[in-house]
């Protein structure tokens, strides 16, 4: 087992949400693999991706949940909001309906995540300028009104993809530095440096449990 894998100080959990077909999985793929996935099947439930990035000289592991846009998986995906430190809310600039649903996504996010969760609005498919259906200004205004960060990006060309993920991380990191984000809270979506490069926290929990038991027995 390589130690390099654990060579990071924080784990940030992200969730990517938005209507079906706006390119959530492609954005994730572009970010983790630096490739565009042309024939991306519908996501069933959730998919998962990770990448280690660097913010302010700190190595941070991003654990990203890519959720299914389909309504039928809404119940499944809800579970993954709770622990998210960053939420990337995606719409498709060529389909207004995906933009119109943003407020409902935002409501979900606000209810299910904690107040410190950083929400980043991404207008995807900005390479399809000719088919644009939502102007930059309009979306920018929506973002500003709701206190969201915003970029237009393209999972196809990779434009602004990296920036969106990194900017979110910077913002989260900033919150940690400011003390606005409580690292000890179970649902902060941030874990500080894994104490043990163990294979999993299930084991850690078990150990912890045993430890607790022992304590109580005394």
């Amino acid at each position: 087992m390589s130690t390099g894998q654990y060579n990071y100080s924080y784990i940030f959990k992200y969730i990517i949400i938005g209507d079906m077909g706006v390119g959530k999985s492609c954005l994730l793929h572009q970010f983790t693999e630096k490739k565009f996935m042309a024939d991306c099947p519908h996501t069933i439930g959730v998919e998962f991706g990770t990448r280690i990035i660097e913010v302010a000289g700190q190595k941070i592991k991003l654990q990203i949940w890519d959720t299914a846009g389909q309504e039928r998986f809404r119940a499944v995906t809800r579970s993954y909001y709770r622990g998210a430190a960053g939420a990337l809310m995606v719409y498709d600039i060529t389909r207004r309906s995906t933009y119109n649903h943003l407020s409902s996504w935002l409501t979900d996010t606000r209810t299910l995540t904690n107040p410190s969760t950083v929400i980043f609005l991404i207008g995807n498919k900005c390479d399809l300028e000719a088919q644009r259906d939502v102007t930059y200004e309009e979306a920018k205004q929506f973002a500003d009104e709701n206190g969201l960060m915003f970029v237009e990006a393209s999972a196809k060309t990779g434009q602004n993809v990296e920036e969106a993920f990194l900017e979110t991380a910077r913002k989260i990191y900033q919150s940690i530095q400011d003390g606005r984000l409580d690292l000890n809270a179970a649902e902060s979506g941030v874990q500080h440096k894994p104490s043990q490069p163990g294979r999993n926290t299930l084991n850690n929990d078990q150990q912890q449990n045993r430890y607790n038991k022992d304590n109580c027995a005394c």
Partner: peptide, 13 residues
């Protein structure tokens, strides 16, 4: 790692 994260989310829920 993925199972862990997914389990964590379910445990939280």
């Amino acid at each position: 790692e993925r199972l862990q994260a997914q389990s964590d989310a379910q445990v939280d829920t």
